[in-house]
């Protein structure tokens, strides 16, 4: 097991009577990228600012690379934590060239060692050193901000929704490049985001946060396939939640008897099915009526109503497109499903 680069335990912080963090625990191992995913106002930015040292936590501890920076009366100031930040809008120093921005956290010897060029190359901006920030596009500015954070080889890099100001296509491209740059440099990172696509595609682990606590932490696949509760299921991806009862290792639902993944107690339950598990057929399966179809190009999301009134959504590729409202189809479920008691 690799060493822990960030350990957060019982971290709490309130603004007046409003709790922003209500006891957060996290563990990030060397070389890992952890995404803290949550809706706006869940406390994820406060968490990041407490780790960076810009805010004082009320309770709890934070250790960076084995050194306690918060806790037991200790509050190490931000510049002594060796935690580099990539802020939302980049926040480049407007009066410094790209090279001087990237070299800001380096001492003189390190600046001459070629480290600046090395990290600029990592983020795909080799040869841009002499430019000024205002001569760069938004995406390029963000790349410089990442390079600037990586340059001093900090034990931990914090990324605060770094792609949210960019347009969709650029965002996808930048995510892949930044992930690649962090990995190539062996950096450990925490990415704060409200975008589940970003968290699932970039991170090695995802911590889902709500109302100041971590609700679930796991690999992207675990969080998507085995959400801890129906709220997480709905927040991380589209979810069809059906009423049902658990009978041994099978859930009895309006879509029939579905095989269960994971343990579950018997009795009444809410059953999670992902829309891509739902298949449409002209014969067989539970009879349903098409309510509408939203075409997305790469797939289509079809809203259906079962004869008992239950509404559900199915994600279908080519073969399932072109259905009009009112069409009669049969519904089957592929794979295992998850059930939550109650």
């Amino acid at each position: 097991m690799t060493e822990s680069m960030l350990t957060v335990a019982g971290l709490a912080k309130s603004y007046g009577a409003v709790p922003a963090l209500a006891g957060v625990d996290l563990d990030v191992r060397r070389g890992m990228l952890l995404a803290v995913l949550g809706p706006s106002g869940c406390g994820k930015t406060t968490l990041l600012r407490c780790v960076a040292g810009f805010e004082r936590a009320d309770r709890g501890t934070v250790s960076v690379a084995g050194r306690t920076v918060v806790g037991n009366g200790v509050h190490v100031p931000p510049h002594r934590r060796r935690v580099a930040v990539v802020p939302q809008e980049g926040a480049l120093f407007p009066h410094l060239s790209v090279a001087d921005n990237v070299g800001y956290g380096l001492d003189r010897a390190a600046r001459r060692s070629g480290r600046v060029e090395e990290v600029l190359d990592l983020v795909g901006l080799a040869g841009y050193g002499a430019r000024m920030p205002h001569q760069l596009s938004g995406g390029q500015q963000q790349r410089v901000a990442v390079a600037r954070a990586l340059a001093p080889r900090p034990p931990l890099v914090l990324l605060d929704e770094p792609f949210s100001a960019l347009d969709a296509k650029l965002r996808t491209e930048l995510r892949a490049d930044v992930r690649q740059a962090l990995r190539a440099d062996g950096a450990t990172g925490v990415l704060v985001t409200h975008d589940q696509g970003e968290a699932l595609s970039m991170a090695d682990a995802v911590a889902v946060m709500d109302a100041g606590v971590i609700v679930q932490c796991g690999t992207p696949a675990e969080v998507y396939r085995d959400p801890a509760d129906p709220w997480v299921a709905r927040f991380v991806g589209d979810a069809v939640l059906l009423p049902g009862t658990v009978d041994d290792d099978v859930a009895v639902t309006p879509l029939g008897r579905l095989p269960l993944r994971g343990p579950s107690t018997g009795g009444a339950a809410t059953v999670l099915v992902r829309p891509e598990q739902i298949r449409l057929a002209t014969v067989g399966g539970a009879p349903a009526t098409v309510v509408r179809q939203d075409f997305h190009g790469h797939d289509a999301l079809t809203t259906l109503r079962l004869d008992d009134g239950t509404v559900l959504a199915a994600r279908t590729l080519d073969e399932g497109t072109g259905l009009t409202a009112g069409a009669q189809v049969g519904v089957t479920v592929w794979g295992q499903v998850r059930a939550y008691a109650g």
Binding site: A52, P77, V85, A91, P94
Partner: peptide, 28 residues
């Protein structure tokens, strides 16, 4: 012209408050 986010980024790169004032806040 010298927003807090810029100064915070400078602090996170290991420069103390006085150094940040001299190299970032003042020139801006």
């Amino acid at each position: 012209q010298s927003p807090p986010a810029v100064e915070e980024a400078a602090r996170s790169l290991g420069r103390g408050p006085f150094a940040v004032f001299r190299t970032v806040t003042l020139p801006l």
